[in-house]
Amino acid sequence: MRWGNSATASQNTAVYDEGLRQHMLRVYNYMGLGLVITGLVAFFVGSTPALYVPIFSSPLKWVVMFAPLAFVMFFSFKINSLSAAAAQGMFWAFCAVMGLSMASIFLNFTGSSIARTFFISAAMFGVMSLYGYTTKANLAKFGSFLIMGLIGVVIASIVNIFLGSSVLQFAVSIIGILVFLGLTAWDTQSIKDQYAEHNGAEGNQKLAVMGALSLYLSFINIFQLLLSLTGQQDE
């Protein structure tokens, strides 16, 4: 009887582990495809004067700049009432809007520095996400500090839009990179912990979309902040 219980427990563990593996793959696939959409939109707009001139030479640039934030807020408030398909569609739309807001990097930085920064960001992100997935330490205790750091970075970034201080920008970039690297590990562990078979396919798919959004935002911010520090200006 004891052997039978042990065998059943092992089988249940194997089923859970496979489900978790598929869930995490779905999260990373969503995130990866989201980055592709963002990159394609940013490159297309940034290389098309008929599109970027009307946007970035008019007050419309402020709408484009803050549109992703509005998307994230709407997403956060409405996720529970959305179907999995609708949540996924919203995520793709958000990635496209983010690409529009990031088109200016192709006007300001060389292609080689953008590519170099992307791969460095990917390596940093990968290391921290792997740590978050494999560590036995409970990272939840760092959550409140990371959120406070995130709020501070956002406020300082908004203020610096109007101040234009290079010193403040440097400090925000350094602190921001550290905060988002920490959030990458924390979010990865949270995504792993939130997975449960009893959520059902619909529930877990929405969790995968939200998880992809969290990791996507961390990566994008690491990339942008690192680019502001090390990117080579396109003269």
Rank of each mutant, 00 (worst) to 15 (best):
T134C: 09
N80L: 06
F125T: 05
T48E: 12
Q88A: 12
L107T: 01
V97N: 04
V64G: 04
M73V: 15
M31Y: 00
A140L: 05
C95L: 10
T48D: 08
A86G: 02
K136G: 08
G46K: 08
S10Y: 13
A86D: 05
F66Y: 10
L139H: 00
K141N: 15
F56H: 00
G32P: 13
Y133K: 10
Q88R: 14
R116L: 14
L107F: 03
L60T: 05
S129C: 09
Y28R: 02
L130C: 11
I79V: 09
Y131D: 09
S76R: 15
V64H: 13
K141P: 05
G99E: 01
F91R: 01
G19Y: 12
P59G: 02
M65V: 07
V63H: 11
F44R: 10
S113C: 07
I105A: 01
I79P: 02
F44E: 06
A115L: 15
G126F: 09
S104H: 14
T117P: 01
L40E: 00
P68F: 11
G89S: 00
M124K: 08
Y30L: 14
K136H: 07
T135A: 01
A140G: 03
A67C: 09
V27A: 02
Q22R: 15
I37Y: 11
F74G: 13
S144V: 13
P68T: 10
K141I: 13
V63M: 12
R26M: 13
Y28C: 04
A9E: 14
M124G: 13
S113P: 11
A140I: 09
A85P: 03
K61V: 12
S83N: 07
F44V: 14
P49T: 05
Y133P: 06
W92A: 02
A14M: 10
S47P: 07
F125L: 10
S57G: 07
W62T: 04
F94R: 01
F66C: 04
I114D: 08
F43L: 12
S121V: 04
G126E: 13
S101F: 03
A137W: 07
V53L: 10
A70F: 08
Y133V: 00
T13Y: 05
W62G: 03
F77W: 12
F106G: 00
S113R: 11
K136Y: 00
S58Q: 10
T48R: 13
G32W: 14
L40T: 11
V36M: 15
Y16P: 07
F109Q: 08
A67H: 09
G39K: 06
I37C: 08
T38V: 06
S144R: 15
I37A: 10
A42Y: 01
